[in-house]
Design a protein around this nucleic acid. Structure first.
Length: 819
RNA sequence: GCCGAGGUGGCGGAACUGGUUUACGCGCACGACUCAAAAUCGUGUGGUCGCAAGGCCGUGAGGGUUCGAGUCCCUCCCUCGGCACCA
């Protein structure tokens, strides 16, 4: 029975019982569909997104809770600030761990995924996250991956998806190819197995075409600097020149790439990568055996993935090249410190001005010719000298320096077509196919006559067939290849029978556009409703792990740009503001892992202290972006804070008066407004730890007061609400409200009151604090000095000394400088 | 090696554009309640000298700028994250 107005209808519980109130409010939020976002845009929009989870069999991790609590706090705060908030979630459910578990347990991946999702959903709902559950998406749902496939076909039509047989990173344990971004230290990102190089037919996405755009786009993003740097370095743009050496005998061109054209006269030899196509044809008969032996050795080295610190090795080909700058004949060597995959696969070696070339030249007794001297220092230069400087021994260019010299050299050679400006990137095209079962089928059909034919749009999605055996074959073929009735299909453009593509997409595909799907998750004519995209996009605040700094966050930006170029989405960048979470470390200071046995389970913690205390603790334990070790006592402290909050409100609720204009206690009122200001600013800046400490300070003062008004109790509960929503809803009800506080107005700061507040100002003598003064802001300097001189301890330090200077910062500080 | 972030009590961490270092929490000590313990509440808690008032020293090390430096500048040490023969 609920009665209106100020009559209290709940029995006030004497002690805080989290379990009881958590289930009560979670049920009510869901029943009332309280957090459904309206497409009608009654108010200004905010799209608050966190990285949707991979629903693994391990269940929710305390790291998930940290990310999702943060985005939940921001979403709840913004709702109270009057924004129309879109805060959705879903499941990034394709991928290897599920497939591997499925194989081990003998369950279909789809079935296992459904189980995991159910568990994850329950766990996430238990944490009180205010998601709009009507918008849940699932990357493994055919109605979802229909559009993942559709987007792939757009990429294909735009020439951005292509097949190539190239040596790729092959993980022998996962039995699939990997993207460059998935190889860490020469090992598989997922399982740690050293990767092998294996030439295979692959689907590739031409992300390199977007290298410059992806680089420039970083400039407008409010992202952590380290993530911007990471992407910047990963793209690895470097400006230089392609310089054409000439093969001595054949007269053929041999282009090399350099960023230091100014050192061209110091090039004393040329080095080819072992994989360079001309190696075989230029090697002289005398050197044939030595070169062949070296190539074999180098091949092995790649497979061993030897440490980068290894000593440089190489072999002379017997051939020579002509340096176009001075027509000098220089020997051509082969060495594996030159990579085929970067630049021209060949370099001009300038041992005097490059550490690697110097090391190599020293070992093989190749000539070193200095052509750069430091601008300032006189005398002998220590080689290798890699800094910029003034050119010497470079006829026609002596005396020039740095960029000017580089330009001049390139310009001169350009006249005879022996050089051109060139830009190189470290970024490689994205290896987009996987030889595994549990992924989106790549929607193309191979026809003997027609070649690669895209599956017609009306036939999408190409559904994953149910299979008995989804173990990877290890042959480079996906298990799908074994299902004849699925593979063999009529060619869409001719009467022949073609074969379906049996490779699947990588785990990253579904997450490369999911934020677009949330705006209209059930829309059937397209991947998203264009009108609604205009309303919600872009994502205003994105929260997630930094482990995706170059993977997901780069792929997502790439797809967004492609779709933008095709006029399919309104913005070129998907995520305006991104905040990266810091790891939650085990109590032993080590990364949490099952094998170490230091994993903290959020459900267990919630059982112990309640969900709200868990949320408060995870936000309070340290700065959001920092890695902090778990501390069980710290979590109990968060619970203590909520216990005391509960006691305070329950104690005052029956007697608190509602005084519209004035609070009875000046100290309380001042602190209230300071707290509102601090909590608001801290929340907006992701400084959740200091927001909570401000609330704690406020509570510490309130506890000492014999009586409090509604004008104090209500804002306190409202400010706590984004952080600890269940207890806050309950206390709000006990303060006489019948509606949820989720859409109550966030308390407003009384700026005038804060400006009028008495200030406490330290008085220093020679920079050391000797006393303090309290006064109303704005009083004159003379008055402050006069009163400061009256302080006994200040007097003591002034007597017998000559006053040199007085520094007064109004309302902040007074400093007497004496001698 | 290169790029980036950071070194503040016993611990996690606060500190606005240079202005009272150590807020808040944990831990610890003592006290109250209790037969006792736990829980809870109260008081204290950087080091050092002092009965006290108060003094001196303290933000990785050393130097500098300044009336005043955790914050700015230079040199160095250490930790963490990333890249790594990218020409």
């Amino acid at each position: 029975m609920r009665l209106p107005g100020r009559v209290r209808y709940t029995v006030i519980m004497s002690t805080y019982d989290p379990k009881l109130i958590e289930s009560k409010w979670q049920k009510r939020w869901l029943d009332e569909n309280l957090f459904a976002a309206s497409d009608q845009m009654p108010r200004k929009k905010m799209y608050v997104l966190d990285m949707f989870p991979y629903p693994s069999g391990d269940g929710l991790h305390v790291g998930h809770v940290k990310i999702y609590t943060a985005s939940d706090i921001v979403a709840r705060y913004l709702r109270m600030k009057g924004f129309n908030v879109l805060h959705p979630t879903g499941w990034d459910a394709f991928g290897l761990p599920t497939e591997n578990t499925a194989i081990k347990k003998g369950i279909q991946p789809a079935v296992l995924t459904a189980q995991n999702i159910t568990r994850f959903r329950e766990q996430m709902q238990r944490m009180g996250f205010s998601y709009d559950w009507n918008r849940e998406v699932n990357t493994t749902d055919p109605q979802y991956y229909k559009w993942t496939q559709w987007i792939f076909l757009q990429l294909f039509r735009m020439g951005l998806a292509y097949q190539a047989t190239i040596p790729i990173n092959w993980c022998p344990s996962c039995k699939t190819g990997l993207a460059n971004e998935e190889v860490i230290d020469g090992k598989c990102e997922r399982c740690g197995t050293p990767v092998e190089e294996k030439p295979m037919r692959q689907w590739m996405l031409r992300i390199t075409k977007y290298a410059d755009q992806l680089l420039e786009g970083l400039g407008g993003l409010d992202w952590p600097k380290f993530v911007l740097d990471l992407q910047h370095n990963w793209i690895g743009r470097s400006e230089g020149a392609e310089i054409i050496f000439t093969l001595d005998q054949a007269g053929k061109d041999l282009p090399v790439f350099t960023t230091r054209a100014d050192t061209l006269f110091g090039a004393t030899y040329v080095v080819l990568s072992p994989n360079h196509p001309v190696v075989g044809e230029i090697t002289t008969p005398e050197q044939q055996d030595a070169v062949q032996a070296y190539l074999k050795e180098a091949q092995k080295q790649v497979q061993l993935n030897s440490e980068s610190e290894k000593e440089k090795t190489g072999v002379f080909t017997g051939a020579y090249a002509i340096n176009p700058a001075n027509n000098k004949k220089v020997p051509i060597w082969v060495a594996d410190y030159v990579l085929m995959s970067y630049g021209a696969g060949a370099i001009m070696a300038v041992p005097a001005h490059d550490v690697r070339d110097f090391e190599f030249a020293t070992k093989y007794k190749l000539p070193v010719e200095q052509v750069i001297v430091p601008e300032t220092a006189a005398g002998e230069t220590h080689l290798p000298y890699v800094e910029e400087g003034i050119l010497i021994n470079s006829p026609g260019f002596d005396g020039l320096g740095g960029a000017e010299a580089r330009k001049a050299v390139v310009r001169k050679l350009q006249l005879s077509k022996k050089a051109k400006v060139s830009v190189q990137y470290k970024l490689r095209d994205w290896v987009f196919s996987r030889q595994r079962y549990w992924g989106e089928p790549i929607p193309v059909i191979h026809c003997e006559k027609c070649g690669v034919v895209p599956v017609p749009e009306k036939d999408l999605p190409v559904e994953l067939p149910a299979v008995d055996k989804y173990e990877p074959t290890g042959t480079g073929e996906s298990p799908l290849a074994a299902i004849e009735e699925w593979v063999n299909v009529k060619c869409p453009t001719c009467p022949r029978i073609g074969r379906r593509e049996t490779n699947t997409m990588p785990q990253w595909a579904g997450s490369s556009w999911y934020w677009l799907r949330y705006v209209s998750p059930n829309y059937t004519p397209a991947f998203a409703d264009p009108a609604i995209m205009q309303k919600w996009l872009p994502v205003d605040i994105y929260v997630g792990g930094s482990e995706h700094a170059v993977l997901h966050l780069l792929y997502a930006r790439f797809w967004q740009r492609v779709l933008h170029d095709a006029n399919l989405v309104p913005h070129s960048e998907p995520f305006k503001r991104f905040r990266a979470v810091g790891l939650v470390i085990g109590e032993d200071g080590q990364k949490m892992s099952k094998s170490r046995g230091n994993v903290i389970n959020p459900d267990e913690m919630a059982d112990k202290v309640g969900v709200d205390a868990l949320r408060i603790y995870e936000m309070f334990m340290g700065p959001f972006e920092a890695s902090v070790a778990w501390n069980i006592n710290g979590m109990k402290g968060s619970r203590r804070f909520l216990d005391r909050t509960w006691d305070l409100i329950v104690k005052h609720a029956p007697t608190a008066v509602d005084r519209k204009d004035q609070v009875e206690d000046e100290e309380v009122e001042l602190l209230l407004h300071q707290t509102i200001r601090r909590v608001s600013e801290s929340t907006e800046n992701f400084k959740f730890n200091t927001a909570i400490s401000s609330l704690m300070e406020f509570l510490n003062v309130l506890e000492k007061k014999p009586s409090l008004t509604m004008q104090t109790l209500q804002p306190f509960v409202l400010m706590l609400a984004p952080y600890a929503p269940h207890i806050s809803e309950e206390l709000w009800e006990q303060l006489g409200h019948t509606q949820s506080l989720a859409y109550e107005a966030w308390p407003a700061v009384n700026q005038k009151l804060l400006a009028r507040a008495t200030v406490t100002v330290p008085v220093q003598v020679n920079g050391r604090v000797r006393g303090e003064l309290q006064f109303d802001p704005g009083i004159s300097e003379e008055e402050v000095i006069k009163r400061a001189r009256e302080l006994p301890n200040v007097q003591k330090h002034l007597t017998g000394k000559a006053l040199v200077k007085t520094v007064y910062v109004p309302d902040r500080l007074l400093n007497f400088v004496v001698k």
